[in-house]
């Protein structure tokens, strides 16, 4: 099976999920006895192509064009269609980033193909490749197989594979330029400046203990309960997206794909169901505690300790027990 890995960079800085996806691509290539080709797109990214070429793969395609300097869905789709026509892959793998979500379904559909998105793993059994993805906000997993002829498209969730497991190559892979034909009129949208909303007031990535709250808190007036627990623990308070969307906590307290990614020594998830978007931001934590009234909540999948119960009973009890333990 010939695999084309499409990496992601911005201003010549890698999106690191690219290397997690590389691991999956290397594994599938080894299992299917296929070739692995990696593509680097942009402008002035030859250094990145050189870096990728040190990894174990058969070839690196360097796709450079003035119109690829800034990402646009139209530009990337046009360029990658040409890359795919030349490389003739069976399987196109991409990291499931916000950017990839923005163009990969379009790219696949422009070739009349489907895309299996946001996969957390795969299985290769009896010559058949099956991708595993989550459904129902992580409450169930699904085995999904391609039905039509190749090329197939799949994207892999951040954290599904470990970038440090990427194998280096015995020798440097050849870097070959692919020239693509792009005209300004192919691109219908105009990308403008990037910015951050406000200076991050708190850097949750440095907090050793995080107490995070989700929908289970029900109302803003219940927040002091959690703030008290965080105080007793000497930890920072954080939240899943819905809480920040409501404005109950500032956006810089949000953990997850659109917020901060943290790995504290202790993460306490209170009334958080554990949707994928949240879990990707905290699953590297050393010890995870989950309290939720729903025993089937996916947050328990990543928890070391779980309490199935009412957070309004457990939070004050926990705060008291911690005080007791402190004074003991």
């Amino acid at each position: 099976m010939k695999i084309l890995l499409i990496t992601e960079q911005r201003d010549a800085t890698w999106n690191k999920v690219s290397f997690e996806t590389l691991v999956a691509a290397q594994q599938i290539a080894a299992q299917t006895g296929g070739k692995l080709v990696g593509a680097v797109m942009g402008k002035g990214v030859d250094t990145l192509a050189g870096a990728l070429a040190t990894k174990k793969l058969d070839e690196v395609l360097l796709v450079e064009h003035d119109l690829l300097e800034k990402y646009t869905a139209d530009g990337y789709t046009h360029a990658l269609k040409q890359v795919i026509a030349q490389a003739q892959p069976d399987l196109v793998l991409l990291p499931h980033t916000y950017q990839v979500r923005d163009f990969a379904p379009k790219l696949a559909a422009s070739l009349g193909k489907g895309m299996i998105g946001d996969c957390i793993g795969y299985r290769y059994e009896n010559g058949k490749l099956v991708f595993v993805r989550q459904m129902f906000q992580g409450k169930t997993a699904a085995d999904v197989a391609f039905q039509a002829a190749a090329p197939w498209f799949a994207t892999l969730q951040a954290g599904a594979f470990r970038a440090d497991q990427a194998q280096d190559g015995a020798a440097k892979a050849p870097v070959n330029h692919v020239s693509v034909n792009l005209k300004p009129e192919d691109i219908r949208t105009v990308p403008l400046e990037l910015f951050r909303e406000a200076k991050q007031a708190v850097d949750l990535t440095q907090a050793p203990i995080i107490v995070a709250i989700g929908r289970g808190i029900k109302e803003q007036k219940n927040l002091p309960l959690v703030e008290n627990l965080a105080k007793v623990l000497g930890g920072e308070i954080a939240a899943s997206r819905p809480i920040c969307d409501e404005g109950w906590l500032p956006m810089d307290r949000q953990i997850g794909s659109s917020g901060q990614t943290v790995a504290p020594k202790l993460y306490i998830a209170l009334g958080i169901s554990g949707a994928i978007q949240h879990v990707v931001g905290m699953k590297g934590s050393r010890t995870v505690v989950a309290v939720n009234k729903d025993a089937n909540a996916p947050i328990f999948e990543v928890a070391d300790y779980g309490i199935v119960g009412d957070i309004f009973e457990v939070i004050p009890a926990l705060a008291e027990e911690l005080e007791k333990a402190k004074s003991a």
Binding site: K113, G114, M115, I116, V130, Q134, M135, G138, K139, T140, A141, A142, D143, V144, A145, F146, Q147, A148, V288, A290, A295, N296, P298, F300, E301, V302, A303, D304, Y305, G306, I307, V308
Partner: peptide
């Protein structure tokens, strides 16, 4: 172009002590 072959409750990756 793709087919969900089966859905299931995912196997635990971490041992959770309830």
């Amino acid at each position: 172009t793709q087919k969900v072959e089966r859905i299931y409750v995912p196997a635990k990756t971490k041992k959770t002590e309830i």
